[in-house]
Write a protein that binds this DNA or RNA. Structure first.
Lengths: 133, 133
DNA sequence: TGTATGATTGTATCATTGTACTAATTGTAT
DNA sequence: ATACAATTAGTACAATGATACAATCATACA
């Protein structure tokens, strides 16, 4: 149960209200990373609204990188790793990733030139930013 | 233990991700004909997903003639991966590998230039190129 | 050997989850 | 009133999970 109250007379769209309440609950610790949010249908029933409205709110939060919605699984509050962690990961991770990538690709029989060509090509048509859960 | 990582936020269905990773591992020799894959339950537990999702991936690979799943016995890489399959896989595999590598690395905050520099550096220290099995 | 039995494997089916698309409703300016 | 845009609802769908099942294997024992 989600103790989330709406004001239907405020003129503020419901999906915005949901977004704001959930942000609040994360800020004040009522929701913690890893917590599962109610399903769109469950929360919709609780609030007596259509589940698509909840889905819209969830989508906004997802695009903001606050939650992770996964079809068939549910929606979860995202872990937000502290900056120093990601910074420490940066160096070791890129080395490991590159090592592994090159090993795999060379093992496939591609030449270094081909690999570079691929990198260049895909770098040009790149849409950035997705995070693993 | 199966080095197989999923991205629950990519929007790409999990069963598709599993199919792709296994194709990759076959292409680059990490999996060889005759090798037994993890049981649907074992892999599911490792990935923290439902075993039916693994089963779905295995079924697709089975229908593609890449693996053989046998009720009560397990699933195995087929002895003779169809040539046209492996050949076609080679291309899609490098594309998938590259795309995933770049996504990972760019997410860490590296610029395309830095990535290219890294690649160049490691390619130099990586002496001869190997042939595909 | 042969067979009984329990464990382990993949399979089938349906429920539950979020998604996509479209239609209806509501608010607001003209 | 009308038109337009934003919001909400209806419907169909795709992905994942839960549960019960069938086939095979491993083991013990006669």
């Amino acid at each position: 149960m989600m103790r989330l109250e709406l004001d239907f007379r405020s003129g503020i769209p419901i999906y915005i209200q949901i977004v704001d309440r959930i942000k609040e609950m994360i800020s004040n610790g009522h929701l913690k990373p890893g917590d599962q949010l109610p399903t769109v249908r469950a929360l919709a029933q609780e609030l007596r609204i259509n589940f698509n409205t909840v889905a819209r709110a969830y989508r906004i939060l997802d695009e903001s990188g606050i939650i992770s919605t996964q079809q068939g699984r549910g929606t979860y509050i995202l872990e937000i790793p502290p900056p120093e962690v990601t910074q420490a990961m940066r160096q070791t991770t890129i080395e490991a990733l590159t090592e592994r990538y090159l090993a795999d690709v060379l093992r496939l029989g591609f030449s270094p030139e081909e690999v570079l060509a691929f990198i260049h090509r895909q770098l040009k048509s790149k849409s950035p930013l997705q995070k693993p859960f």
